[in-house]
Write a protein that binds this DNA or RNA. Structure first.
Lengths: 184, 184
DNA sequence: GTCTATAGGTGGATAGAC
DNA sequence: GTCTATCCACCTATAGAC
């Protein structure tokens, strides 16, 4: 595999488990078996590595959403929550949920990409919600966009607490409850 | 005011805005107008400072909960969410929500105190939920304890995203929705 | 309690050889 | 692309004078 990708893979896991301020080039270098200096050839500054991390993550995430071709809105929401659950079962936090906590300390470029991730994430969700309500499969008050933001917030928070308690069930319980509440 | 308390005040704000790995003794020393060495007289190690931070925060938080003498369950829940909202309006994250994100990098002693905070927090909530359901003021499926964990997760997550978007309304909207859903 | 001074380590980052 | 060597800033922490 391309070295750039392997670096991103290791860095991604580190951010998801320890945060952007919780890892260093030394950590990646040790796992990869190269020197820190080599890493700077691929990603000159840590800020650039961080930005690339978000861009790639968003791209993969949106591709996963686009691949959800389930029949109904409820099924799509379950698949959506399932993506989070899979990450959690691997012992990780959502990359962007983790970065949201560290938001104030992040380089400007990373903050911008982060907002974009949530923007696109909620756009997809709002679309599913709107279609589901129109077809009568879902029921909720207010704008789809507001409910989308509600869902993202709750799932990210549940993921964070489930991970620190080492109980995936804390997440799945929340996800089930959220979707049930929207179903007619 | 006692120096210990002033140090804790400054450290608390720093953790709530930048995280435990996002500040140093130098930051506190600068704000307080003393040297880093002086801080070590009060809190020999950063891990001890962090532990004291959680202990004091939990103590103040539980005292605030105990002071909620509102008439009904719904009013109590609104006051509960209001505590979070006030912190957020001050530009801060919940201390323990922030630390939950950094959980994997925290000293063992801090991890233990953190779990205790959420334990007590959810215990209080579960009590309110149970009473509210018994009196018919609230309606929900499943164990009160499970709903309590759901509420904490969702509020912490909403707080985190509201802060990174610099939109308090993202939090208040979620809080309103959660409480409305429980009301009969 | 607070200071100066300093230790010992790690952080991100660069120059230049291979 | 990867290495050695190195820089400098910053980190947590301690010793010992005042």
């Amino acid at each position: 595999m391309a070295t750039d990708e392997r670096i991103l893979d290791l860095a991604e896991r580190l951010v998801q488990t320890r945060g952007f301020n919780g890892f260093s080039y030394a950590d990646i270098a040790a796992s990869l078996g190269v020197t820190k200096a080599s890493l700077h050839y691929h990603f000159p500054a840590k800020a650039e590595l961080g930005r690339s991390l978000i861009v790639r993550y968003e791209s993969n995430f949106l591709a996963a959403l686009a691949a959800i071709k389930a029949q109904g809105a409820v099924q799509r929401l379950k698949r959506y929550a399932g993506i989070y659950a899979d990450v959690l079962r691997d012992g990780r936090m959502c990359l962007c949920g983790m970065l949201a906590a560290e938001y104030a300390t992040l380089p400007k470029a990373m903050q911008k990409e982060l907002k974009h991730f949530f923007e696109e994430n909620e756009r997809w969700l709002a679309q599913v919600l709107e279609e589901g309500r129109r077809s009568g499969e879902l029921e909720f008050a207010g704008a789809p966009r507001e409910v989308a933001s509600f869902l993202v917030s709750s799932l990210e928070g549940a993921m964070m607490l489930a991970r620190s308690h080492d109980q995936v069930s804390r997440f799945t319980s929340v996800a089930r409850r959220l979707i049930e509440e929207l179903s007619t």
